[in-house]
């Protein structure tokens, strides 16, 4: 008898992002992933704004696999003119024979917003060091069968700047994401980012704005060769962790729903041996 080699489970998720949440997946060593994440305005902004289609925000990012386990990424978002960078490390990989039941990746993200304040005094006071936020996440995922994969993400965020002294600088959240394949090349995805209560109390941008809400998103993934298209509905406008987990405003129930899409394209810079 030949010895049976244990293999790693592949394709837990199709893309690097469920909607906004990063997945345990990473580009292969030497592969570069270019991602365009685009969100229109809220559906409740009315017919005058063509239900949000008149507005556009996006995040462009590049993700690169340094080795089979380590990948890095950089991005730039419209919202708050934010730059972000991350390092992801594949710590554990789920195996075929369930000797390792889950895949675990560690993710560290740093974001830096550059948007100017309209008030010149505020602009002068909010220097570079206040503009960084840091996120540490443990991505725990399991591919239950060829159709269903779920991911649980305990999250820690440190804000260098919060809206008032009532808000905590260190906040905790628990995020859950999943995908269900509906055909070989299509899947329905969902994610929910639960911010534990009583950590961020101040409205993010004044009393006339909708209140802070937890981020809930749904997506429809369509995969074709080196591309993945994701059509998404979410109540978060931003696509970086400190902002969509901690600064989402307006709930689905009130119609604060952004329609959008993610498109990814994979480039092979080095052949895989």
């Amino acid at each position: 008898m030949r010895k049976k080699k244990t293999g790693y489970v592949t394709g837990t998720f199709k893309a690097l992002y469920i909607v906004n949440m990063k997945t345990i997946e990473a580009p292969a060593a030497g592969a570069l992933n270019f991602e365009i994440q685009h969100r229109f305005g809220t559906i409740n902004s009315g017919s005058y704004n063509l239900w949000g289609l008149d507005f556009a925000t996006f995040r462009l990012s590049l993700d690169y696999g340094i080795s089979d386990r380590v990948s890095i990424g950089i991005g730039r978002s419209t919202t708050q003119k934010t730059f972000d960078g991350y390092v992801k490390y594949k710590l554990l990989r789920q195996t075929d024979n369930s000797s390792m039941p889950v895949s675990v990746s560690l993710l560290g993200t740093s974001t830096y917003f550059t948007e100017h304040y309209s008030d010149s005094i505020e602009q002068a006071l909010i220097t570079g060091k206040y503009r960084f936020d840091y996120t540490a996440q443990v991505l725990i995922a399991r591919k239950f069968n060829e159709k269903l994969s779920l991911q649980l993400v305990p999250t820690f965020i440190h804000y260098n700047l919060v809206d008032s002294s009532a808000d905590h600088n260190n906040v905790f959240a628990l995020c859950l994401g999943g995908r269900m394949k509906i055909s070989k090349r299509m899947a329905i995805t969902a994610e929910y980012n639960y911010l534990f209560p009583n950590q961020l109390l101040t409205y993010p941008a004044g009393p006339n704005q909708p209140p802070r809400a937890n981020s809930l998103s749904f997506g429809w993934d369509i995969e074709t060769g080196g591309h993945v298209f994701q059509l998404v509905f979410t109540n978060s406008q931003s696509m970086v962790e400190p902002q969509y987990i901690g600064q989402t405003q307006g709930t689905w129930g009130k119609g604060y729903i952004y329609f959008g899409f993610n498109i990814s394209r994979n480039f092979n810079l080095k052949p895989h041996k």
Partner: peptide, 22 residues
């Protein structure tokens, strides 16, 4: 699953979508 492609994403698609190696 022992077939090696120069593009790893292609290998994943081969196993997942085309020959259904599982």
């Amino acid at each position: 699953k022992g077939f090696i492609f120069p593009k790893e994403l292609m290998q994943e698609h081969f196993n997942e979508n085309y020959v259904e190696s599982d």
